[in-house]
């Protein structure tokens, strides 16, 4: 969670890092609020090496004009910390936009999903990605009815269910490298109990079909032997073909082949 906070805003390093529950409280869907009353440890600029100091934002960008002050120190809140009080900001989506990627979250708890989606929406804003969503996916409900006792014919039953919820984010008009960076971020900071599916779409110029014929497919068996192709096709794969060739060259089979010819 501390790394999440750091990713959320670079200015947060000025605040003492405390466990998640004391700093952030989830009040409503899509809203994070600061609840911290902990003392703040200030980092003086002289402590930092020159290379970092050169890359720091000026206070014009990191400090808001809010009347709210960081407790004890009296400094105004950094603007991206204050942004956590509000719903995530968004980049405007143009009327005609290209759909370049989709991120799908799945899990069993809505709180976890909503909290993580909130984090991702903020990340999208800082990466300047126009997005549509999050769309609520249809929930999948699985039901099981079992007997309470281990005896087969016992009459009393008990019901169990597992509900899988989903949230989907459509990413528009973004460079594929940035989308992949975003997917990497989403995967890295994923909390427990959230599964992520990332779809990246690629666009080609017209006439791809003609160019496809020029691509020479490799006939080398080492390509097919990679683990991801191991179970591709149950009946006919490279291993089976090789074994058939070996068997037919075996004298037991070869004599039959010769006689017929």
């Amino acid at each position: 969670m501390t790394s999440l906070l750091r990713a959320l805003s670079p200015s947060l390093r000025n605040i003492s890092i405390t466990p998640y529950k004391s700093i952030l409280g989830l009040s409503r869907q899509g809203q994070i609020r600061l609840n911290s009353n902990k003392p703040v440890r200030e980092v003086e600029a002289t402590e930092l090496p020159q290379s970092i100091k050169a890359n720091l934002y000026s206070s014009k960008y990191t400090h808001s004009n809010t009347t709210e002050r960081v407790p004890d120190s009296g400094h105004p809140l950094p603007i991206n910390v204050e942004a956590n009080y509000y719903a995530p900001l968004r980049v405007e989506v143009p009327t005609h936009a290209d759909h370049v990627g989709t991120l799908t979250l799945r899990g069993h708890e809505s709180e976890t999903l909503d909290f993580y989606m909130d984090f991702l929406l903020r990340a999208c804003y800082y990466l300047k990605m126009p997005i549509i969503g999050p769309r609520f996916l249809k929930k999948k409900r699985e039901l099981w009815t079992v007997t309470r006792a281990h005896f087969v014919h016992s009459k009393s039953k008990q019901n169990f269910e597992r509900i899988t919820l989903g949230r989907q984010l459509k990413i528009m008009n973004t460079n594929p490298e940035v989308v992949q960076l975003f997917f990497g971020l989403a995967r890295r900071y994923a909390p427990a109990g959230v599964s992520i599916r990332a779809d990246l779409f690629d666009f080609e110029h017209l006439g791809v079909g003609k160019r496809m014929t020029d691509i020479k497919l490799s006939t080398d068996r080492t390509d097919v032997q990679e683990p991801k192709y191991e179970h591709f096709g149950t009946d006919k794969n490279a291993d089976v073909a090789q074994r058939v060739r070996e068997l037919l060259e075996d004298p037991v089979f070869k004599k039959h082949l010769k006689k017929e010819e």
């Binding site: 089976v240 089979f253 017929e260």
Partner: peptide, 24 residues
Amino acid sequence: EVTTRALKYIARNTELPMRARMEA
């Protein structure tokens, strides 16, 4: 598994001679 599938392929291949298929 590979051997079984190879033998099944030979046994079911109608282009191969009948004796080879029977052997498989």
